[in-house]
Measured scan of single mutants.
Amino acid sequence: MAASAHGSVWGPLRLGIPGLCCRRPPLGLYARMRRLPGPEVSGRSVAAASGPGAWGTDHYCLELLRKRDYEGYLCSLLLPAESRSSVFALRAFNVELAQVKDSVSEKTIGLMRMQFWKKTVEDIYCDNPPHQPVAIELWKAVKRHNLTKRWLMKIVDEREKNLDDKAYRNIKELENYAENTQSSLLYLTLEILGIKDLHADHAASHIGKAQGIVTCLRATPYHGSRRKVFLPMDICMLHGVSQEDFLRRNQDKNVRDVIYDIASQAHLHLKHARSFHKTVPVKAFPAFLQTVSLEDFLKKIQRVDFDIFHPSLQQKNTLLPLYLYIQSWRKTY
């Protein structure tokens, strides 16, 4: 089996927390979720979201995140109150960019949308954001926290390059993509939290790379249903696996070995980020709550012996909000 052949990389499970039942964490995340308004986002309300009498641009960002990046939404709820709305805006910006690729039928249209967001970032730093909910909220975040323009532009530029429907040539190319998107998002989150620390940035770099790799793995069944495969070609070739094997949902050992190798790289990034947690300011830990969902996925895929098409991998963990709150309460990542 794939797991038994390579099992030495995987460390002990961390979500089991001995003695936790003896201490009762304060009510927090679930209460916040219940208090949030929840009407559906419609095209009509989106168009009017920044106008008078609408929910408001902040509510639009929150709803977009809740629907399109639920794990990011849950993590954002546990940030300090003064930072929450800015991170909602930042993550909503990322969602807007991420959904361009799947929402257009022609690359030219995707490039036009990316050009809109490039100009939007430029206009935000000229205090002239367009009348668009996410743009307005992002402008507020930039003004409030003096966010670095370079990180925002890196996210747009990398998403634009990724409009080509090509597999990553190697794991390094996937890591570079993750660094310029997910890690950049974390650098900006640290700025919102008021953290300027080399060790925190180092952790953000590795956690962002782990996030990018896990996202690529999780999306494999969806991409396969659209006749697309984006997994690193070098690892596929190493194990003699073709793109057609993934399109046919082949579950042979060599296919699972490909998934094992890729998942192991995410695991190593996560492990390395945690190896120097004592040197990272505690104030930075809330920015890294996504490690909970990353670890949850890596454990699940290990349990199914790296069968990327196993139905259990597509099921939401209903206990994730609780695990996130516990992680926040324990002040760790």
Rank of each mutant, 00 (worst) to 15 (best):
V214S: 06
R66F: 06
L190S: 02
A178S: 13
R113N: 08
A54P: 13
R68E: 05
R274G: 02
K166C: 15
L231E: 02
F288L: 08
R144S: 09
G208H: 01
H223Y: 14
V282Q: 09
R91Q: 08
K166N: 11
D245T: 11
L268R: 10
L247V: 12
L268M: 10
I171D: 00
A204Q: 02
K154S: 08
D201A: 04
V258W: 02
P130T: 09
D261V: 05
E96D: 09
H59K: 11
T220G: 05
G194N: 10
K331H: 09
D234P: 03
D197P: 01
L313Q: 00
E158D: 10
I301F: 02
F93Y: 11
Q115M: 06
L324Q: 04
V46P: 05
H202N: 05
A204N: 01
L268T: 08
E82N: 14
H239I: 00
E71L: 07
Y168N: 05
R249C: 15
Y260G: 06
G72F: 09
L78C: 14
V241L: 08
E82Y: 15
F88L: 12
M112G: 14
S76N: 09
V241R: 03
E179A: 04
T291G: 01
D261N: 06
E160I: 13
D157P: 00
K283E: 15
G194P: 00
H223G: 05
L74I: 14
V304D: 01
E179C: 02
Q290H: 09
V104D: 10
E137L: 04
P133W: 05
A135S: 08
F246T: 04
A287V: 12
T57V: 10
F246N: 02
L65G: 04
L185V: 10
F288Q: 00
N146W: 05
I235V: 13
L77N: 03
I308W: 02
P52Q: 08
A54Y: 15
K149V: 04
R330C: 10
N250Q: 13
W55D: 15
T332F: 10
K253C: 10
V100I: 15
G224Y: 11
V229K: 03
A98V: 09
N180Q: 13
K107M: 10
D257H: 10
L77P: 02
P321C: 13
E106V: 09
K331I: 10
R248M: 07
S76Y: 06
V87Y: 12
A210M: 01
K271P: 01
N170T: 14
K154R: 11
N180F: 13
L319C: 11
S183R: 06
K67R: 10
H223K: 07
L322D: 00
A98R: 05
G51S: 14
D69T: 00
P286A: 12
L97Q: 04
R303S: 12
F88M: 14
R218V: 05
P281M: 02
D201G: 04
L152F: 12
Q290S: 09
F306Y: 07
T57S: 14
E106F: 08
W55P: 15
S45C: 10
R274D: 01
R113G: 07
D197H: 09
D123R: 09
L138K: 02
S105L: 12
E175N: 03
T220D: 00
A284W: 02
E179K: 01
K107W: 09
T215Y: 11
F276L: 08
D252S: 14
L270F: 02
Y60A: 09
N146L: 07
W329R: 13
G194F: 00
R274A: 03
P286F: 07
Q132P: 04
D252M: 11
R274M: 04
D245C: 12
V46K: 06
R274I: 02
R218Q: 10
G208P: 01
H145V: 03
K299R: 12
V46H: 10
L193K: 02
I109S: 12
A49F: 15
S103E: 13
D165A: 12
Y168H: 12
A263N: 01
V121N: 01
V134I: 14
W55S: 15
F309D: 01
Y70S: 08
L62V: 14
H206A: 05
R91P: 00
W151P: 03
L138T: 03
F306R: 01
Q99C: 11
V282Y: 07
G212W: 00
L74N: 04
L193N: 02
L111Y: 14
T318Y: 14
S293A: 12
L90Q: 04
V258E: 01
R226Y: 12
W329M: 10
L294P: 01
V292Q: 07
Q314F: 09
K278Q: 15
A54D: 08
A92G: 08
Q327G: 06
R256V: 03
C126A: 15
C216V: 15
W55V: 13
K253S: 14
Q99W: 12
H272I: 11
C216M: 15
S103L: 09
Q132T: 13
R226M: 14
K316G: 09
K331E: 11
V95L: 08
S85C: 11
A203I: 06
L97H: 01
E295G: 08
I213S: 02
V282M: 08
D307W: 04
S85T: 13
Q243T: 09
Q302D: 06
A178Q: 00
H202W: 05
Y125R: 01
N146E: 10
G208V: 01
V280R: 00
K316I: 12
D261C: 05
R159K: 05
E295S: 09
R169A: 12
V100N: 06
R150K: 08
A273I: 00
F88Q: 12
P286I: 09
G212I: 02
R218D: 01
V241Y: 01
Q211M: 14
M153G: 07
I262E: 01
G56K: 15
Y60C: 07
V214A: 09
D201P: 02
F276T: 06
V280C: 06
L111S: 15
R68Y: 11
I259F: 03
L64P: 01
G72A: 15
G224A: 15
I259M: 05
Q211N: 13
A210N: 00
D164I: 13
K228A: 15
S264Q: 06
D296V: 07
A98Q: 04
L268E: 08
D197A: 08
L62Y: 14
I213V: 10
V292W: 13
K278D: 13
A49Y: 15
Q182P: 00
K209P: 01
L298Y: 03
Y177G: 09
H199S: 07
P281N: 08
G110S: 14
Y125D: 06
A48T: 15
R159M: 06
H267D: 10
G194A: 07
E137N: 11
N94L: 03
I136K: 15
Q302R: 07
N254D: 15
V121Y: 02
D102Q: 10
A48P: 06
T189G: 04
I124A: 05
F309Y: 13
K253V: 14
W139C: 10
A266F: 01
L74K: 01
L320G: 03
L313E: 01
H223V: 07
L185Y: 03
L313D: 00
A98K: 04
M237D: 04
D197Y: 02
V241N: 01
D305W: 00
Q211R: 09
P129W: 04
L193V: 08
W329N: 06
N162C: 12
L64Q: 08
D257K: 04
P321E: 00
S275T: 09
N170H: 11
K196R: 15
N180M: 14
A203E: 00
A49T: 12
A141W: 02
W139D: 03
F276G: 08
L247I: 12
A204I: 00
V229W: 04
L174H: 00
D127L: 02
Q115V: 08
L324N: 04
H267Y: 09
Q115F: 06
V121A: 02
P129D: 03
Y73Q: 02
V280L: 10
E160K: 14
E191I: 01
I136W: 12
R303I: 09
I326S: 08
K119V: 04
F285I: 09
A266G: 10
V142Q: 05
T332E: 12
D58A: 11
L298P: 00
Y168C: 12
Q243H: 07
Q99Y: 13
G51A: 13
P232C: 01
H223Q: 11
A210I: 02
H199V: 06
F306L: 02
D102V: 06
H202Y: 05
G194M: 03
D201W: 04
K283Q: 14
R91M: 06
S205R: 05
P221N: 13
F88D: 02
V142N: 05
A47L: 04
E179Y: 04
S184A: 12
A141M: 04
R169L: 10
K300F: 00
Q302F: 05
L138N: 00
P133G: 07
R256D: 00
N170F: 05
Q314I: 11
I301Y: 01
